[in-house]
Every structure is written in C-alpha cells, then in structure tokens.
C-alpha cells in the first residue's frame, strides 16, 4: 500500500517545493511505466516498448520496460538517469492523478503523497507563486497529466485496432541471464511480424494512412534496447 494522498491545494500546499532529478527516490523504482502513443517517436530511441494489460481493466496499454526484475529500474545508476529522454509517467512523479470517477477524466485532480521525500519547504522548485497561482513547475505537471490522459484514449484505440487485425501476440523474452526470474517479463505482448507482413493491402493502406503503421514500426525498432537492459542487468548483478 502507498501512503494516503492529498489533493493539491494552493492554500494548504502554498509553500511546497519539489526536488528535481533525484532519481534514487523510491517513486522512480519501477520496472515498467505506461506510455502513450505520442511519446513513441521519442522513447523508442532509448526504451524497449511493449504492450501489456491494464491490471484494472484488462485493456491493452503501451509500456516502456525499465528493468527486467520486479521493481528494479535499470535506467537509474549512481543517481543518474541513463537516457536522454524521459517517459511522461516518470516526469509526472511524485504527483499522481486522482480520479474519483475512473472513466471521467474531467474529474481528475492532481494529488501528492505528503510523505514523499521529494517534497520540501525550502529545497527545490516552488509549486505555487506568492499570489497562489501555479508556478511554471506546476504548469508543466498539469501539461504532462493532460498529455497522459488524452494520450491514454488514443493509445487504447490504436491498440484495439491492432488487436482486431490480429497483430498483437503474447511475447516471451528469452534471455539467458543469471538469476533472472522469468516472471518479471511475463504478461507482455508484442507485434506479430508475420501477420503484419501478411496484411491484405487494403488494411495496410488504412494503417499507413491513420499512422498506425508508423507507430508499429517504431515499436518494432525499440526491441533492440532489450539487449542493453540485459547488459545493464548483468553489470548490476556483478556489482552486488
């Protein structure tokens, strides 16, 4: 269980500051994060992108793998983040979106865990300006959440189209690494390339026109990063 969260309030939290780039914080310890379609173009340069099911709804979602083992983020090493671009999900932390009606994005409010080590009264960037309006930092957070929320729907529809074309299949990543429990990379889905190349031309043209094909190719290209994760994983194991 995580700590209780509080909805962000310009009065109550007027003096809160947020500490940036402290990647060793617990909130960044995740072996995967949700991503949305609009991020693909950037993220595929650094992260392997797969499909997984939302544990609450069973619907397909895009995921970036950050590690190979429960809760371990291989992108964080010695307090540094080993990539140029960041998933929005990571940038949104330690904030969270509180949605009282799970299907109504309009009701969403930004929430914070008051116990987070990334909030402070004096260190870091302030969240509110003296007049109570949102600081530049908070405005960025707002933008990130709205990109995530809007992207979620678009991504779900994209994946549903791929599924209807039979392009999604369960994948097993076979790596022979010492001490790697296979369970960590269970439950992932990827693109079936045979089915993709066998798509009837009409479907292919449609996929090309609506941009799905481009996104699919981005995802396929991202699988090279698995090798990198494997290497990092082994380095980390031998450091221990």
């Amino acid at each position: 269980m995580r700590h209780a969260t509080e909805i962000l309030d310009s009065k109550k939290h007027q003096h809160l500051h947020i500490i940036n780039n402290r990647w060793s914080d617990a909130c960044y310890q995740a072996d995967n994060v949700n991503v949305v379609m609009s991020e693909l173009q950037n993220l595929v340069h650094d992260y392997p992108i797969f499909i997984a099911k939302n544990p609450n709804t069973g619907q397909f979602q895009l995921r970036a793998l950050l590690g190979l083992k429960g809760g371990v983020n291989l992108y964080v090493k010695d307090g540094q983040w080993r990539a140029h671009c960041f998933p929005l999900d990571i940038l949104s932390r330690p904030f969270r979106l509180f949605m009282p009606e799970s299907d109504n994005m309009e009701t969403g409010a930004i929430a914070i865990d008051p116990g987070s080590a990334l909030i402070s009264e004096n260190e870091g960037e302030p969240l509110f300006q003296a007049d109570g309006s949102a600081s530049a930092r908070l405005q960025r957070i707002n933008q990130i959440f709205s990109a995530l929320v809007n992207g979620q729907q678009q991504s779900a529809e994209f994946l549903q189209r791929l599924h209807q074309l039979g392009l999604i299949e369960p994948v097993s990543i076979n790596l022979t690494l010492k001490n790697l429990p296979n369970a960590a990379i269970d439950g992932l889905y990827g693109i079936n390339e045979d089915k993709l190349s066998a798509l009837p031309s009409e479907a292919l043209i449609e996929c090309h026109k609506n941009g799905d094909l481009y996104a699919v190719h981005l995802m396929l290209s991202s699988s090279v990063h698995i090798e990198k994760l494997a290497r990092w994983y082994e380095e980390q194991e031998s450091d221990l």
Partner: peptide, 11 residues
C-alpha cells in the same frame, strides 16, 4: 462487473 464493462481479451 468488469467483464460486463471492459470485456475479456481474446489473447
């Protein structure tokens, strides 16, 4: 309830 709402995936 979830199945009525979201359905189960075929894969």
């Amino acid at each position: 309830n979830k199945i009525h709402r979201y359905g189960l995936s075929t894969i």
